[in-house]
Amino acid sequence: MTDVISARGLVKRYGDVTALDGLDLTVPEGTVLGLLGPNGAGKTTAVRVLTTLLTADAGSAHVAGIDVFADPRGVRERIGLSGQYAAVDEYLTGFENLDMIGRLYRLGRRRSRERARELLDRFSLSDAADRPVKTYSGGMRRRLDLAGALVASPSVLFLDEPTTGLDPRSRTDMWEVIRELVSGGTTLLLTTQYLEEADRLADEIVVIDRGRVIAQGTADQLKAEVGGERVEVVVQEAADLARARNVLLAVATGEVVVEDHVRRLTAPVTGGGKVLVEALGRLDAAGIAVLDVGLRRPTLDDVFLTLTGHGAEDTPEEAAA
């Protein structure tokens, strides 16, 4: 597989602030890379450099086989970019926005119109097509912005925090749209501070902090780095806690943690669902009433905390998700 996006040793400084500190990235053709990090980690700077909006102080970058710094225009012809803030014109209608972008990609008058209609249809914006964008909801604006990035059917797409600030429902809609998009073979670099988002959408995740890569791998690999899976059991009666602990010790790979106040036991295990079933069978055989049971794997939040020593800046909404 060829790398459609590759960056080596990117450095970008603003005065004393180092936004990118030797960033390396590769995105193989047809895959989704999730660039994950908290606010100020350098995600947006990285995207701006790769999409020719900023020049780096050092390093090299290639997109679709073209040197980003030597031939920025060649890169622009092949990419689509949808930014953090929906860059659509609020006084134009949805149709006029996409039509304008088509004209600027030089698709020609007829093709621009067709393409605008196609995309509005695809993003469920047909009903609002002839209304000024001013009247759109946040989710609709983001969808239109994403549609704008797709006008010229680019094979490489950059999405900078596509769901930041959206309500949970619009976020889920957006995920659906993005997933559909990449199933068509588009290479995508996606930045996000939502750990769940990277987990859902990305084939590979690069965690960055202070302009450097601090971890890289699939969601599963990253989770494995901070520890394996655990069986969690909440028993009905506090009196059963001690017996339940002995039962679970038989299936656990390590120490069983007991939290008296919530009547919860947590046992590290290997083997997934099978072990869960076995644990349940044994508890049942011992006559212990179970209120709740589950197999828990570490979340990317755990990953982030372990790697950086500080959590991702969660919005309250995200923390609840």
Partner: peptide, 13 residues
């Protein structure tokens, strides 16, 4: 301010 210039700048215009 609204990022529209960024959109223009990302186009091959």
């Amino acid at each position: 301010q609204k990022g529209i210039i960024d959109r223009f700048r990302s186009l091959p215009m």
